[in-house]
Write a protein that binds this DNA or RNA. Structure first.
Lengths: 239, 239
DNA sequence: GAAAACCGAGCGAACGCTCGATTTAATCTT
DNA sequence: AAGATTAAATCGAGCGTTCGCTCGGTTTTC
């Protein structure tokens, strides 16, 4: 699987997440008609991500958001109860579907190595397709209140668990070396996050998301596999 | 070298960086006596890092800073010309000495492998000793103006260059495999940054900074070395 | 007794948010 | 089909508060 293939299959699944936001935040939303809510929530989310990525969520004023969305101040507050509530909605929204897609990507009948490759690529390709959202979630997560911060941490550990489980299964099958799989996973996640956090660097290095995936996987495999794979024919060397 | 040894040698070198800040920002500072400036700048920097890490720099008000430092609003503004100027001072300060210490840690007579190990540990141990500063610099860097952002990017590329050079030299000597050393470096940096960005996770995993260093190095060596080292006697396996 | 350092009330501007007025859409009546 | 009625959605000036920052006055230092 490469990014182009992934996009065709999965992007549609991720688009209609403002509909989820409607059902999950019904009580905070004063507008009745679902169609209207979905349409305007998407505008609000997109605008918030745009401005938020440019100058940070806290520096974004509701007047900025009003201008960007074309909605008045009053209209905006029909879709969320406060600025913080908007932030929480944005953080929650998409997190569940992210976890879900990651878990669905695991194939029970496939080998641990195949699953390792699939999960890493899925994570990477999702962040590529929704870079502003991932960047925003990472950077603004620290400004959440205690409760929401705890929820975010638990979600991250849950997501880490997918990889840990695959590594453990691989060890059990005698394919992967016995190692600290939680730590391996943490390091893998760090590099996966870097793809959307340090976009400018990889653009400068002329590295595509497919290049990145293959390179990262070759590192992980060199470390984890007991039986090293035959050398890849494509060269990794820079120009 | 482990963290305890590092701390004894290098921490003193990093403490007096508010003195540098004085000489570099003389024109923006109204207070004359160097001793007074150094003392109060350190209080201001420490307080800014503390509050900034708690609630973000933008959410920190000058009244917050006044309370935390024990200085009045008027006194504060004798040490910087604006809130943004304070941010810029903090970002610049320490960056040069960081680069300098990293470069000094490279030993021309040592092997590339030794230098790789030293540089990675030095980076890691510095971020451990000054975690609030590193966290602040990473998280608030995006809120800088265009010029300062460009300076930050150039510094990062400069710092990456140290590792790239070591990897290239290792390849030349036939110790390291021919690979995309810039990309390898980017991935290494991503994991190094994760150490101070996701502190809670490594605390939960009960991983010390020394553990982290050794584990990361074993991954890098598995990927880079042509002649694999004999298996480490200490087990990486989790409990 | 200057000079240096510090103080903190107060300025205009911008903030998050509200609410009565207004416009738009949906439903009912004939 | 057209007008009347009601409900839904939007509007934006204005509220109270807080923001970054200043400056005339006070305290500290030498």
């Amino acid at each position: 699987m490469n990014y182009a293939e992934f996009k065709k299959i999965t992007v549609l699944h991720m688009k209609n997440n403002s509909q989820e936001a409607f059902t999950e935040n019904r009580k905070d939303i004063r507008v009745k008609k679902e169609k209207t809510v979905v349409k305007n929530l998407e505008r609000i989310f997109d605008a918030t991500l745009k401005i938020g990525n440019e100058k940070g969520f806290h520096a974004m004023s509701m007047r900025d958001l009003s201008e960007e969305t074309g909605l008045s101040m009053g209209a905006l507050y029909a879709y969320f109860s406060s600025k913080e509530n908007l932030m929480v909605m944005l953080q929650r929204n998409g997190r569940d579907s992210f976890q879900q897609i990651l878990e669905q990507s695991v194939d029970k009948d496939a080998s641990p190595l195949e699953n390792l490759r699939t999960v890493i690529k899925t994570h990477l390709f999702m962040s590529e397709a929704m870079q502003p959202r991932f960047y925003f979630t990472y950077m603004e997560g620290k400004n959440l209140n205690k409760v929401e911060k705890k929820v975010a941490v638990e979600h991250e550990l849950l997501s880490d668990g997918i990889l840990v489980k695959i590594l453990q299964e691989g060890q059990k099958q005698g394919i992967f070396k016995p190692q600290n799989h939680s730590l391996t996973t943490a390091l893998i996640k760090a590099t996966l996050n870097d793809w959307y956090l340090k976009r400018w660097k990889y653009a400068k290095l002329n590295v595509s998301v497919d290049d990145f995936a293959e390179y990262l996987l070759s590192i992980i495999e060199a470390f984890c596999l007991i039986q090293p794979l035959p050398e890849n024919t494509q060269s990794h060397q820079a120009g």
